[in-house]
Structures are given as C-alpha cells and as structure tokens.
Computed example of a mutant assay.
Amino acid sequence: MQLTELAIDGVFEILPTRHQDERGYFAETFRSDWFAANVADVPFVQENQSLSRSVGVVRGLHFQAAPFAQGKLVRCVAGAIFDVAVDIRHESPSFGKWVATTLTAEKGNQLWIPEGFLHGFCTLTPDTQVSYKVTNYYDKASDKGVLWNDPQIGIQWPDIADPASLSAKDQVQPKLADLPAYF
C-alpha cells in the first residue's frame, strides 16, 4: 500500500496495491496490522455504505461529537467522489482548513480522516457508492455538522455540486463560527 499524508497533519490518502492480470485485479483494501503501524492504531467497529444516484450530490459536512467521535476510512466502491476533510480541532494550527482528494472505484484509493474533522463529499458520477469504516458507533445525539458551503472554510467544491441535493439536515447546519469547541 502507498501512503500519502495530505496538507493537514493526520489526514492520509491510501492507495492499495493491485495485482492485475487478464481477469482483472486483486487488492488488499485493509490490513489492521499495516494500518496500525502506518496510519493509526484504532479499532474499526462499524462499516457504512451510501448510494447517490445523481451527479453532484453533496453529503456533509458531518462529524460525531464525544463520546462517539469517529475516525473514518473512506473509499469509493462505485463511481467517483470529491472527498473533503475539514479540521475542527480548536488547538490545531490547521483549524478551519480543508483538504480534498478524488476517490474513485477505478483507482481504489482511500482517505483516512481522524477524529476532530468534518467530512463531506460530492459525487462526480451517477450511481456512486461510498463505503467507510468508522472507529465508533453511530449515535444520533452525537451527530453534528457544519454548513457545506460555509464561506469561512471556503471549500472549492466542483462546479457540479448541487445544493438542491442536500438533505434537510444539511441545509440547516450551523457555520463553523457558531460551532462549539467539540475538539
């Protein structure tokens, strides 16, 4: 596996090695021992998957507050996404800054987003499926977020990002300036 640390400390892009032949390929997409030694020594307790039918669907920006804070290992199993992580750790030098990468099923790359970050994505192809492992269980009371297009954060979303695709919850999320210090 190839590991690339992105511009914010602790956020990594992971590219599993693919062994290809005329039939297709084989890849280890996750190894607990490798992940613990190279990225983070954390348990994964739940795996989630979403399907977005249309191009430009925006999901996020989400996080879970303590005691159910989550790290996420995100991969696109069908299609492609513009995947975003925003640092909301108040003592961090990169507080309020964001990084993004394109995750595709074709490439098989993944994004590790530790606790203390917002996460969101925009679909780049129709019928996109996203799968992510998390380090803590979902808890409705701990489910929090920030407005996807908060100008203080200034994410440069793809032009196809469709505000009409937002869930009712995501349409009314607070701005970062109005968010309490969770981390």
Rank of each mutant, 00 (worst) to 15 (best):
R59Y: 03
P158D: 08
Q49M: 13
S92C: 09
V11T: 04
A164S: 14
Q46H: 11
P16W: 07
Q173T: 00
K169T: 10
L179Q: 01
I88M: 01
E5C: 07
V39D: 06
G96R: 04
Y25G: 08
H119S: 04
P174I: 04
A105Q: 12
Y25I: 06
Q46I: 08
N38A: 07
Q46D: 10
G145W: 12
N109P: 01
K107V: 14
V86I: 11
P67K: 04
V77S: 15
D170A: 00
K107R: 15
E28S: 11
R23C: 02
L103F: 11
S94E: 05
V55G: 02
R59D: 08
D87K: 04
P126L: 11
F117Y: 12
F121I: 00
A105T: 05
H90Q: 08
N38P: 05
G120R: 06
A65I: 02
K97Q: 15
H19I: 12
S167P: 04
A27N: 07
C76M: 09
E28L: 07
G108H: 05
A40L: 08
D178Y: 00
V45N: 07
H90F: 04
A181F: 07
Y137A: 12
E106T: 13
Q110I: 03
P180F: 06
T104L: 03
L73F: 12
S52H: 08
D139H: 15
S54Q: 14
V134P: 01
T128I: 10
S142A: 15
R18K: 15
W112E: 10
F183A: 07
A161T: 06
H19Q: 13
F82L: 01
H62R: 08
S94D: 13
M1H: 14
S94Q: 11
I88V: 10
S50T: 14
I160H: 05
A40H: 07
C122L: 00
T29N: 12
Y182V: 06
W157G: 01
V130F: 09
L111F: 02
I153W: 09
A80E: 13
P158K: 03
K97M: 12
G56A: 02
V45K: 02
F26P: 01
K72M: 07
A85N: 02
A141W: 09
V58R: 04
P158A: 09
H119G: 01
N149V: 02
T17M: 10
V58M: 11
L3Y: 14
V130G: 09
L73V: 10
Y137G: 11
Q173C: 01
A37D: 15
L166E: 01
P180L: 09
K144G: 01
E13H: 00
S52K: 03
I113L: 10
V74D: 08
Q171K: 14
R75K: 14
A105L: 04
A7Q: 13
A105R: 07
W112V: 08
F121S: 03
E13G: 02
A181Y: 10
I14N: 09
F121P: 03
G10N: 01
Q2R: 14
